[in-house]
Design a protein around this nucleic acid. Structure first.
Lengths: 103, 103
DNA sequence: AAAGAAGTTCTACGAACGTCGTACAATCGG
DNA sequence: CCGATTGTACGACGTTCGTAGAACTTCTTT
């Protein structure tokens, strides 16, 4: 099964905002942003089931927020920073600079 | 019935992003941003029913994106620019500067 | 008072969402 | 080859969402 990634020009703002509007996915994005290098799916542990994680990764990928690539049994995930910045300048920075777990 | 508006410190990023993740609501926000002065609900016409508009206004208000005030039979609506900028710097600008109806 | 205008509330309905468990596929290490 | 690891596919569940119509409230205007 090939992983579909939308082209930069195809990124839609409502879809991106929706992808980022879930606390779990927001946390995933924050962790991806924190580590410069691509990261395996399993290395981010929220309190949810594996299949739920798969679901969240797919939402993020189909919205164009992350890029994923199979690498053996694992899968490397990274933020599409440049693409997002090109298409929606300032958006990702604004989201990431907000207090992670706020008062 | 009193309209509840969350305090600036209570604004939550997921809620704001979710409020902005609907195309109709995004359009409302864009129109509010375009006109400096507060605007009556009915002056923004999308292709949806009145009750649907009421619903969208409520979602935006409860997320803290807009402020509403009764004024006779009409209701004035305005963007909470300052509050949003204070809580999530750059977010609203990034959202508004994206192509309104993209290719 | 009567009529109209502007929104709200209530209810309903189909669609989408977040979550999970189970079963499965693919790959790596011995 | 066998087992362990890593992640996916599928189906199910309860919840939330976006939408609408109809009845209602509130205020203005005549």
């Amino acid at each position: 099964m090939n992983l579909h990634h939308p082209d930069t020009s195809e990124l839609e703002l409502p879809a991106v905002l929706h992808a980022l509007s879930d606390p779990q996915r927001l946390e995933i994005v924050r962790e991806l942003a924190a580590s410069a290098a691509p990261v395996t799916c399993g290395s981010i542990t929220l309190g949810v089931a594996k299949s739920t994680m798969t679901h969240h990764y797919r939402v993020l990928r189909e919205a164009g927020v992350i890029r994923q690539e199979r690498r053996g049994t694992t899968k490397l995930t990274e933020l599409r920073r440049d693409d997002l910045d090109a298409r929606f300048p300032g958006l990702l920075d604004a989201v990431l600079s907000s207090s992670p777990v706020h008062a």
